[in-house]
Design a protein around this nucleic acid. Structure first.
Lengths: 190, 190
DNA sequence: AATTAATTCAGACATCCGTCCTATGCATAT
DNA sequence: ATATGCATAGGACGGATGTCTGAATTAATT
């Protein structure tokens, strides 16, 4: 129990929580300050302005995704097994930690309209698809149908399939569980 | 040349344009009123409040997607051909009318945090995946690998792959064209 | 112990926002 | 012509927001 965390870290954690709970568009600096138990002006003191704080939250999220997906892709030997592990990661995230995916979706939406945030998110998607390309697709014994497209394109498509199916799961989360749709990405390897 | 469009339609068109250009979070009612060449209070007169206006914009967009994708899925005979047509639709939209996709992404993000908008967007995704299921997957001569998963799940995955790949194209739109990644969705049928 | 720097605090500020209210214009019907 | 109802216009309102300033407190340095 570390009784006194860094003040700036407290703010960052609060910002992360607020944004992933309410969406970037519905969060004010006062919300974050209250959540952190800190006075409003502290946010500008540590992060300059709202954009600076949000940029740090994005970097925090990016590191989390890069680390966890990299871990998932280290599990299994064959391409098929690694794909299973990736699917399992997404399913568990949507079950146990859906805020993490909402955060990714939401901040990607923010990145559409802001060129500085665009760079950050574009890099994340590119790095993730590169990881998929290297750890799943760069196997000698792949199925024939995969050779018709560049491995980069296939990797982007796989990542997109995970992402685009996940948002549908989120949208339907208040009624029946449709996360089984994620399994269908496995079609590519069987 | 219809010199005098309906006032409410002018407002609706302006709202559509503003949101698809700047994102729902960065649009004020005054922006929309200026874009429409109309006084601010007219928006509340015709649409009650901001939420009512946004709901109409969403319904407008939903109808556009349902109509155009339904058209795309009527082209071609085999599942493979219809999938090609769907891919072609997305690629042309990203090239000629990227605002339309930004709008879908953005408003889906809005729907994550608002239960009333959630219903609208969830229905759109469900109807689109139903269309894919009925028009592409309900063919007798499908490949063996597709039978391991319910056609509903496969349809959601295909839609998700289109959607998730498209957002990557949007994020990278200022540098090289990566829309070739959309073609890779065809892997499923060959 | 004294001085300096870093941090925390409270509050003001200008601006923007959604909504509402009232008056004016205008067309139709009596 | 007069009265009625809808449409448009202009502006006010209370509240929320991001940013900034200056004082108070604490920590670090000499």
């Amino acid at each position: 129990m570390e009784e006194k965390t860094n003040q700036s870290q407290k703010i960052l954690d609060a910002a992360y929580k607020c944004i992933s709970t309410k969406g970037y568009a519905n969060v004010s600096l006062r919300d974050i300050a209250n959540e952190a138990g800190v006075v409003l002006s502290q946010l500008n003191y540590y992060f300059g302005n709202k954009e600076g704080l949000f940029a740090e939250v994005i970097k925090m999220m990016i590191n989390k995704y890069l680390h966890e997906i990299n871990e998932a892709l280290d599990i299994g030997e064959t391409a098929r097994d690694k794909m299973s592990s990736l699917i399992k990661f997404f399913k568990e995230m949507l079950n146990n930690n859906p805020e993490l995916f909402r955060l990714l979706y939401d901040l990607t939406g923010l990145a559409i309209w802001s060129s500085s945030f665009n760079t950050l998110l574009r890099n994340l998607f590119n790095e993730l698809s590169n990881m998929i390309e290297e750890k799943i697709l760069n196997k000698s014994n792949l199925k024939d149908n995969l050779v018709n497209y560049s491995s980069k394109s296939v990797a982007r498509m796989i990542l997109g399939a995970m992402f685009g199916t996940a948002i549908q799961v989120i949208l339907n989360s208040d009624e029946g569980d449709i996360s089984d749709a994620l399994n269908a990405v496995q079609i590519i390897f069987e």
